[in-house]
Each structure stands twice: as C-alpha cells, then as structure tokens.
Design a protein around this nucleic acid. Structure first.
Lengths: 330, 330
DNA sequence: CTGAAAGCGCTTACAG
DNA sequence: CTGAAAGCGCTTACAG
C-alpha cells in the first residue's frame, strides 16, 4: 500500500494555503509572497517529499527548460567533451539537457530521435554529428523550435551550427606538414559527408597554395574508423607518401597499427597528423601530433547560442605537437 | 507569423469528429472505430502535421513510455554498447530511452540527474555505473518507480541490477594466468567502490584457492584510468610480478605505455589480462587478452528486466585470448 | 500578498 | 462506434 506521489494540492493543504500560492513560491516568483508563507510552503513540501510534475508544468506553460540533444553515435568518441560542456552550461542557465541517442547514422533512428525530441515542449534541439536528410530537416522545422547543428555543418542547410572549421582543420594540418618539409602528403579516412568534403577542400586548398601536386589516390576515403585506417594503409607503399593527415584519431591509430605490421616506422618513414585530438592521441606510441578541437567549448557555445547569447559559429582549434611527425629533409 | 502547433482539437475539426475519437485512433485502441473514420483521422493528422503532445498525454495517463537512463561518465567508454542494447530493446517494446548525464562521479550531478528523471512520469530508471549514496537511494525510492542498477551492484543495496559478475571477472582472469604458469600476479587499478572490492575479492579467492601468497602491494588502487595504469606501473620493478590483471582496458593501456618507456616487454617480461574487452584491446600492440563483458546484452537485459521480463542479474562474459599473455616456465 | 477560476492538450469511463 | 464531460497537476491573469 504505497502512497501516491504528493501533488501541489497536498502541499497546499499541508501548508494551509492555496495551490496558487504553492505554485508561486515553488517557482520563486519575486514579490508575490511573504517569507513566512514561503517557509510554510517549503516545510510542507519537504515533509511530503513533494516534487513538481514537470509534465503538468510544461503543459500549463507550453514551454520547457529541457534542451534535447540528439547524438548520432560517433565512430570516435569525442562526444563526451561536448556533452560535458553542454551540461555545465545548461545547468548554469537553469536548463537541463536530455540526450536522445540516434544510433550510428541510421536515418530511421535519427527520425525517431527527432520525433521524441519534438513530442513535448522543449527549450531547443542540439544535434551532434547528425546527417540531416530532407525529412529530418522538415521535422526539425515543423517543430518551430530553435535548433543548432553541433560539430558538423553545411552552408547549404538552413540551420545554424557550432563547430570547428573543418576546412581549416585539414588545411592547417597540411600547412604544418609542409613546413616540416613534406611534399607528398595524403588525406586518409574522410567520408563523403559535408564534413569529409570540407576537410578535403581544406587539404586541397593548402596543397594548391604551395603549388604541390595531388596525385591520384592520395585522398583515401573511409568512415573515420580504425578499420578504415588499417585498410587504407595497406596501399601506402604504392602511394609513396611521406606524410598523411588522418581524418580522425581512430583512423590515425589504424594507420599506426597497420604500419607496425608492415615494418613502417612512425614518424621516420611516415609522419601523421591526426584530426580530433582526443585522449587517444596520448595513448599511442609515439603519441599523435594532432589538430585538436575544443570539444568542451563547442558544447558550451552550443547551449549559449541556442539560448540566445554568444552567436559564434566556429570555435578555434589548435595544433598540438607530439611525436608522430618528423622533419623531412628537402 | 508562425502557426501554432496543431493540437488534437485541430485534427478533430479537420476530420469532422470529436477529440475523443482522434485520441482513440491515434492510440490505436482496438475496436473503437471504423476503418473509415480512422482513415479520415490519419489524413487530417498528416495534413496538419499533427504530433501528440507527450506532456499532455503523460499528465492524463500518469504514465510514460520513457525510460530514464542515467549515465555516470565512465572513465572508460564501455557505455555505448550498453546504450545500443537498451535502445534496440526499448524500441522493440514501444518504449523510449532518454539519457541523463551525471558527469564523473559527482554526487551533485547524480542527484540532479535523479531529480530530472523523477520529475515527470517515467516507465522506470536505469543507472549505468552510478555510485549510489544514501540520498540517491532515498530519491530513487521516493519516486516509486522501478529502478535497476546497470553494470555495477552491491548486495547491500536494496536495488536490483544487471551486470557482469565482478568477482568472477577477476577470479577467472587470475585462473587463466595461473594456468599459463604465473604465480606472481598483481591486480592494478581498481578503486574502493563496490566494483573494486568485488574484483579484489575475486582476485583473492582465485589466489587462495591455488595456495598462492599475495604479497603486500600486489593490489594497487587507481580509478580505472589510463593515468592510474601508468603511475602504478612505475613500481612494478619492486613488485617482481610476472603478470597483472588490469582493472579496465584503460589501465591496461596505461600499463603498456609505461612498460614501453621502462623497456619492459609485453608479454615476455609481463603478461596482462584486461577487464572489459572494448575495442581498445584490439588497438594496442600487442593486442590485449581480456575478459570481455557483453555490454550489449547487459543493455538488452536491463530494459527487459525493468519491463518485467527476463529477470537475470548476472550476464555471462568470456575470456578472449589475444597477445598480451605469455606462457611462464614454472 | 493571496485565492478562485480558467486553461494547457490529452485520456477515458460513461451514455447512447 | 462515437461524443460530452470530467480530470490529470500545474500556471497565471484577474480580483480583492
């Protein structure tokens, strides 16, 4: 025989006031009650173990303090930094984040997640690494909610975003390698999504600007995965590359592993700079030089932007030198 | 001038029926409407882009199809397998999971997450890797919701759970090492939580059963992290261990890295078996032999159990041999 | 400062 | 098979 959860009515009775008053003090509406009555309400609520039913509150106000963040299963696990940033920032602004999991790039699961996200009142929607197809876009727009793409973007989409600059990420990786004397530089592991294309563009731009030719097959596609890195690396000998920029830390690791099996020394025989810069870069031997994204800040800016402040689209990244790049004699 | 989101009333008007009828066909209440009226309702809903307001529905029914899963930031990233399993299973049973992020073992964030989880109607609560303190327990109990611990447990807590058997995880790692001829075996990286203690107990049990002494300092505490593995490994020389079981894949990696710096060869000088068996084990060189948990199944069973089926507490794991254990001449 | 009352968008006996 | 009506637990003008 379990007691039902106490409602605002129970608290009102216990405190000897009306439910309107309880509602006001729970919501801390300034200047609408005396300290005394507030205290009685607090006491009654505590005694009863009262907790506001958010479904009722959201229905009444037709609004919510919940930000739905949809995360598409990232092959590489950069998302926890982003989530940390979102979490902290949301809390600091009296908001909450609820995470909806959209699996690994299955449009179905993404649609499901968007549907869940828009099925009730929401402060807004944040999508981490999701591939937006036309139907997703329509659902998002129909919801009339503020939405932001996080960590990926396309200028062709009518959606705002918060991300590192993919083009520059790749371009600066190449610049760095060139500065170290490399000329035969490849790009391994990108896919054909906007992100992949943007990185490819950055790679090409940097090579062109330094009048370096790009031979066929220097750009190798994958899906940012460890396996892709391994597979692609098998063809390295034919490519005669002295350096490569890896599309993600995971592909960098795959490259290293395959290299080890082929007797190729990193960085003596092959230099690598990795895009992402997660903890994985410090775990390999040698450690991976990377262009590291500020995932935490991306998370912070996402919710700030969503909430109407700090409208910054691109967040800075930085190149951190570790041990996977060697100077190349010219 | 944006149209407001259509409600059940709009659909009713559009379809020329009452809102009660709309409600029934949207909920697919069998035998309560003709195919004709159903069709008209579907059409009206589609035309208007109607979507049920879940806050209103939950308020009316005082129930929900949402399972709140609280995830405490795991140092190691085993949780995506669990989440995948939960997701699939929930969907198959017409439920949804929403994830609440509880940061890295901050009681505050955990309380916040529990509060969020219990602030509205819920089908139940699943907690992945959370340290349950008395206040958390009380909040959970006050909610009167079904709750399950996932991937960690304590027989002292009045909470059901779904997890691998921590004691056996460690015991079988030790057994395996003994079978390979090792006698001086350590346990690195556990903490003082229930999980750590259970693994320690398993280690001790296996050693005792084989009449092997456990010298002081063979058990080294950490927090399942990469850094812990590195730090602990610095004292290895004094310990004269021929093998070690690592409390997580991450500590195993930390151990390997430190070993490399110290010129210690794996597995010739030191054998390692790692607890967890995530993809990280296949990424090192040599690959890590591990006692691998079936995270996906843990996720599946969690929701099945929560929903009232398949009440299995412990889910089987298996030892997978890779390259980090060498035969030890007796 | 406080209460009575209407309303948020649904669901579900109850009649018919 | 279908509709009118009450109710879910809140919030918020509106009076006083």
């Amino acid at each position: 025989m379990v007691a039902n959860k106490p409602t605002i009515k129970d608290v009102a009775r216990q405190a000897g006031v009306s439910i309107a008053t309880v509602s006001r003090v729970m919501a801390k509406k300034a200047n609408t009650y005396t300290p005394q009555t507030a205290q009685r309400v607090w006491d009654a609520a505590a005694k009863l173990g009262y907790q506001k039913n958010s479904a009722a509150a959201e229905l009444a106000t037709r609004s919510s303090d919940k930000i739905a963040v949809i995360v598409s299963n990232p092959p590489t696990n950069f998302s926890t930094g982003i989530l940390d940033g979102m979490q902290q920032t949301a809390l600091a602004h009296n908001h909450h984040i609820i995470i909806l999991y959209a699996g690994n790039h299955s449009p179905q699961l993404l649609h499901q997640a968007i549907k869940d996200a828009t099925a009730g009142p929401r402060a807004g929607i944040l999508l981490i690494g999701s591939q937006i197809d036309p139907q997703s876009l329509k659902m998002l727009q129909d919801s009339q909610l503020p939405v932001r793409l996080v960590s990926n973007y396309s200028y062709e989409l009518p959606l705002q975003f918060i991300s590192s600059d993919n083009t520059e990420l790749a371009a600066q990786s190449v610049e760095y390698l060139i500065k170290k004397g490399h000329r035969r530089i490849g790009l391994f592991g990108i896919d054909h999504s906007h992100t992949g294309l943007q990185r490819r563009a950055g790679y090409q731009k940097a090579m062109y600007e330094h009048h370096l030719p790009i031979e066929q097959d220097w750009i190798q596609y994958g899906n940012y995965s460890y396996e892709a890195g391994q597979t692609i690396m098998q063809y390295w000998a034919d490519l005669k590359l002295s350096a490569v920029v890896a599309a993600s830390d995971l592909v960098a690791m795959g490259i290293m592993r395959q290299a080890a099996q082929m007797g190729i020394k990193i960085p003596q025989d092959l230099s690598i700079v990795s895009i992402d810069g997660t903890f994985l870069c410090e775990v390999t031997d040698p450690q991976l030089t990377s262009v590291t994204q500020d995932f935490y800040q991306i998370g912070v800016n996402s919710v700030l932007d969503l909430l109407g402040n700090a409208p910054s689209e691109l967040v800075p990244f930085k190149l951190v030198e570790r041990g996977s790049v060697a100077e190349q004699p010219k």
